[in-house]
Design a protein around this nucleic acid. Structure first.
Lengths: 196, 196
DNA sequence: CAAATCTAAAATGTATACATTATACGTTGG
DNA sequence: CCAACGTATAATGTATACATTTTAGATTTG
């Protein structure tokens, strides 16, 4: 509900109404809120309960800087650790994404895009890295979804992805790092206008 | 209690006895367990409750690989973002640590060591990075504490720290990255024997 | 004797009740 | 008329009670 924007940033999360809406009692809901707080999606203030974490433009930029470093690491590791089959699966995801791009199917494009980035993280075979990446990506979901406006930007993103996959298939770590780095640099440019 | 080894890895955490020991009821304890689960210190299995997360040697190595990349990023950012005062404070921590080293005061040495690494992360002024780093460091606390055996290894660690601080004061990002990288490479060697 | 099954105890998952704290609104005093 | 105070309402924080599931031990059976 936070990611999909149903719960607005900064707004308080009242337990009572939300319990009723979800059909559970306060106990499991509160346990879930604590979990989300640790993930950084929810902010807890003593004696005032939970509110939807509000991200400033700097917060977003910081997250993108971090996720860029994480994906660069994942890319380097992937070139060493990943099996050919795993790389082939990423290629397949990429091809699916291209189809969605041509169909201008934004939602499925977006979802597949996310899956590709998660998949690259997974290729590292580094469980901590995978988890941290997933946590960051979930926080960025909302922003990134809004950020994909404009046809030429979209085309650029697709092209960047193509270089990423090529580099990965060639197990060319420097090229992959470059491609990922450039891609996430542009990601910031794509969302900058939205969040500022 | 997990970090200090009072709760052994792999062992189940029974809510009843722990509640009694802490003097709270099950509700707040369970909320805390959910929080720790998201942090990765605790593992939750449906219908079987919480158990202390057990880290394999690979888990530890993965975390060190990741924290190394994080500190490298933090170092690069620190050279740009940190103020002279902030850097001076890290230098002060380092000098304190040297005193503890000469006194062979392992506990305070260890604590100050941790604070230095957190401080370097903080110099990045990147909130996400700071948080992820802190979370990882807390998971590594136990292992790192055990890992500091042997005089010559200890001396090497101190020397590495010295280069780190020097590079930081000179705002020499490549040198700092090198020093951090080497330091964390050795950190793995220091703990490798313990965890395997 | 071993394996399977049944039963009792205990653990987790959830709901509800109570205590405390914050909040909003109406009242009173300057 | 505005500000301060007090009260009522509603929120959070915690404890307890109940339902369900797991687990361990004893009993039974092949």
């Amino acid at each position: 509900m936070i990611i999909e924007g149903e719960l607005e940033p900064g707004k308080r999360i009242y337990e009572g109404p939300l319990c009723e809406r979800l059909g559970v009692s306060r106990t499991p809901l509160r346990e879930a809120l604590r979990y989300l707080a640790s993930e950084g999606l929810v902010e807890l203030t003593p004696q005032r309960g939970a509110s939807v974490r509000r991200f400033s433009a700097k917060d977003i930029q910081d997250m993108l800087v971090l996720i860029r470093a994480l994906e660069e690491l994942a890319g380097r590791l992937a070139c060493i650790e990943a099996s050919d089959e795993e790389i082939a699966e990423v290629r397949k995801l990429h091809d699916d994404m291209l189809d969605y791009y041509r169909e201008e199917n934004r939602l499925d494009y977006y979802k597949t895009n996310q899956r590709i980035h998660s998949a690259i993280a997974a290729l590292s075979h580094n469980e901590s890295l995978i988890q941290v990446h997933a946590s960051l990506q979930s926080k960025l979901k909302r922003v990134r979804f809004i950020g994909h406006e404009g046809r030429e930007k979209w085309a650029a993103a697709v092209a960047e992805h193509e270089s990423m996959i090529k580099a990965l298939e060639g197990r060319n770590a420097p090229a992959l790092v470059n491609a990922l780095s450039e891609h996430l640099e542009h990601a910031w440019e794509r969302v900058r206008d939205v969040v500022s």
